[in-house]
Nucleic acid binder design. Structure first.
Lengths: 223, 223
DNA sequence: CCGCATCCCCAAAGATACTG
DNA sequence: CAGTATCTTTGGGGATGCGG
């Protein structure tokens, strides 16, 4: 009776890890946090995981009920993967993990950081303001990627990849998505970025400022 | 350029997983949530992980700053492992993971569940009451294990393994720790357990009831 | 081109035995 | 008690192939 590959515990933590604890599993789920993706999209986002690994994880996660495989209606008959309702409830786990990891004594340096990850940082480190709540829609351009953000009464209610041309209250255009990361990390200010040309702001500048002010990425702990 | 064993991303989630994403790592940390443990304690709690695995993970986690190895002052010159301040800040991650796993469509059945895990469920599913906050200390006996619980103004401020004989306001004695799990899951009530002799209550019965009433373990989602 | 399946290789995981 | 040493097994990483 060799190892059963599960932890064999009724503990809900162990059970969670049985489902999403395998290597790459959480990162696959992370890639679906901003909306459905195709196999090749996932492969492009996670190049270090081979296609076999990806297929394996997608099968497992589908079996557990974390995501579903769906075929889009014609004419766009593409197969997409998307989180189930229950799978999307991993959000608090990501939030806690990201907040913990951001405070690591030895932060990772000089590594890849995708536009998606930068935008997810917005959701992760967004803090609902106790006073002066506001409402606004935003378009955020990160290089070639475009995102739609919606804040209602100080709550971040929407954050998706988008292709719509609906006008937003404010549009933030970053040529380099790392500039946006520096912004959310508090390493640079909106004004500084605009001055050095890393950010173009269209529309309601005050709304843009409110959004950025609500994001507080913690700094590493002193060792 | 062989595999770097890390995800190679600056994303805080990926970085967290680089540190605590390896197999057994999270469960090792879980074992330290109720206080320091010796190597042999950990091995007894995680028998499926061999001593080599355990030693490896402890080394890794120490290197990352999640836990420290410390030698107790004489005469009890035992080596113990305990979470660092930063390591103990994984608590929200465990909370989120446990809450998610508890709602799994296909819950794990008939598997091991340690007394420690049962007590940790108390912390995980404890909800601070919005009204009528109270304060009390508790002794909880789960088979041979004893735990000290402290609630101050409705906040669960302490939950540790203990050996003290300080009298508590209320003492709950379970011969079988699974009875306590059934209680926190809402499958049985305090009164039922007492009636069938699975629970003996000493001291302030009202305080005991308040504690149990504040624990709400969610049920699996309908599929 | 998209969505995998297959194959090979090596690094972790797992089991067992043993030692300071 | 607190691990290390050794050996076997398994799963991950990488490349390639192949049907739809």
């Amino acid at each position: 009776m060799p190892t059963t590959r599960t932890y064999g515990e009724a503990c809900p933590i162990a059970h969670s890890l049985d489902m999403i604890g395998d290597r790459w599993a959480m990162l696959v789920v992370r890639e679906l946090r901003l909306g459905p993706r195709r196999f090749s999209d996932l492969q492009a986002s996670l190049p270090a995981a081979g296609p076999n690994m990806l297929a394996q994880r997608l099968r497992d996660l589908e079996r557990f009920g974390v995501l579903t495989r769906r075929t889009l209606p014609p004419p766009a008959a593409a197969k997409i993967y998307e989180l189930t309702e229950w799978g999307s409830e991993l959000e608090p786990v990501f939030r806690a993990l990201a907040r913990w990891g951001a405070r690591a004594p030895a932060p990772p340096a000089g590594q890849r950081l995708s536009p998606d990850s930068v935008m997810l940082g917005l959701r992760t480190f967004f803090v609902v303001p106790t006073e002066a709540p506001w409402s606004a829609t935003y378009d955020v351009h990160l290089g070639d990627e475009r995102y739609r953000v919606r804040v209602v009464d100080g709550q971040l209610t929407e954050l998706t990849r988008t292709a719509t041309d609906d006008p937003a209250d404010a549009t933030l255009v970053f040529d380099d998505h790392m500039a946006m990361d520096a912004l959310t990390a508090g390493l640079e200010t909106l004004s500084e970025l605009i001055e050095r040309g890393a950010l173009r702001l269209i529309g309601d500048a005050d709304a843009a400022r409110r959004l950025i002010d609500a994001v507080h990425k913690p700094q590493p702990t002193a060792t």
